[in-house]
Simulated assay, not measured.
Amino acid sequence: MSELLENPDFFLLDQELSAEEIALRDRVRAYGQEHVLPAINAFWERGEHPLPAFKGLADLGVVGTFIEGYGCPGLSRQAAGLVAREMGRIDGSVNTFFGVHSNLCMGSIYMLGNEEQRQRWLPTMAKIETTGAFALTEPTHGSDSVSLETSARRDGDHWVLNGHKRWIGNGHAADVIVLYARDEADGQVKCFVVEKQEDGEYPQGYLPTVIDGKIGKRAINQADIVIEDLRIPEENRLENCHSFKDVNKVLKATRGGASWEAVGHGMAAFEIAANYALEREQFGMPIASYQLVQERLATMLSDLTSMQLLCTRMAQLQERDQLTDAMASMVKMTTSRKALAMCRTARDMLGGNGLLLEYHIGRHLTDMEVVSTYEGTDSMQALIVGREITRISSFTRTRS
């Protein structure tokens, strides 16, 4: 097998990585191949969370990614991107669990909590002794999550929350859920931490239900959560969240994870397609010997290389604090489109075998449908870039 099929890096970008980043890349890749890949298809087909596959995840030195201290590694943007890439290269569900737990939930506590709150929750989460969830999206507020309607009312030394959250990864099972709600007193968004009680149950008024019938990311469960007079102590309100601007700080800090994951899915699609083409014979020849197949593989590698270049540059700009919203949107839009197209091409190249989980590409294809939707749909990313080009916002229109 050629080196290119083992590590599709046509423009030698990994040569620019430090020895520590190379070791990190290889460590995550080996973990995925040993613990996740042998088991993931069975869990994916059943729609179950592969908890046994997480054995060893806490020992990789990646949980908490960009967070410094509290048992977290303080990774660079490039290193954090490599983690998402290599996890996506193995499985999207595992990467989603990791991103929700490690980046969105822990990131909210780290950036918006006070020191006591960080010490209270982050160390056990860094060891995955407790797991986290991030409850922002609502049934009627996805792309416009800034308009969230879940309410919070101060009542003595507690807050009373009412509302509805949906598509909350691990929201039915997490030990710690950061939940965003709008303060009735000033209309501003605040952040609260919901904890499981000592008996393992959620407090009264937190009512999660697993969303069934998904066609992608089946090995990570999302919850629909009804919130009815849920009482949260004041000490569980993250002290430094005063408005949606603070929520955006968390989203900005974790931005780019979906783009790196898309690269991982693209790498997997290329590897699967190229290896299959070399092994599969039709009309007495490996299908890799046919012109049409070679053109497809060349196009896939070209698309993959452009995705890798975009994400590498994105990480550089993030480190310099020069990445704009429009830049991030262009990267998300481009990587999602190209990775999804690559997965579709690979699935087609495998013919009927591409429909079988044992060949893995069907899982990557449907998981990429999810990646194209979360952290901003393709259309929303295009509108952000379009606004940058024209200086005209087309997000809202006055109803007639």
Rank of each mutant, 00 (worst) to 15 (best):
L297C: 08
A298H: 12
A298P: 07
M300K: 10
M300E: 05
S302R: 13
D303T: 03
L304W: 01
L304Q: 04
T305M: 01
T305R: 09
T305Y: 03
Q308V: 00
L309R: 12
L309D: 14
L310D: 11
C311M: 10
C311A: 03
T312Y: 13
R313I: 06
R313V: 10
M314A: 09
Q316N: 06
Q316P: 07
L317G: 03
Q318A: 00
R320I: 03
D321E: 13
D321M: 12
D321F: 12
D321L: 15
L323G: 06
L323V: 11
L323F: 08
L323A: 15
D325M: 06
M327L: 07
M327N: 01
V331C: 03
K332C: 00
M333F: 11
M333D: 07
M333Y: 11
T335S: 12
T335L: 09
T335C: 15
S336H: 11
R337G: 15
K338V: 05
A341P: 04
A341S: 11
C343K: 02
C343H: 03
C343L: 07
T345V: 13
T345H: 10
A346G: 14
R347F: 13
D348N: 12
D348S: 15
D348E: 15
D348R: 14
L350P: 00
L350F: 10
L350V: 08
G351I: 14
G352C: 13
G352Q: 14
N353H: 12
N353I: 07
N353T: 05
L356M: 14
L356T: 01
L357W: 08
E358W: 10
E358A: 10
Y359A: 08
H360L: 10
R363Q: 03
R363S: 00
H364C: 05
H364I: 11
T366L: 09
D367M: 00
D367H: 04
M368H: 01
E369I: 07
T373A: 14
T373P: 00
T373I: 06
Y374H: 15
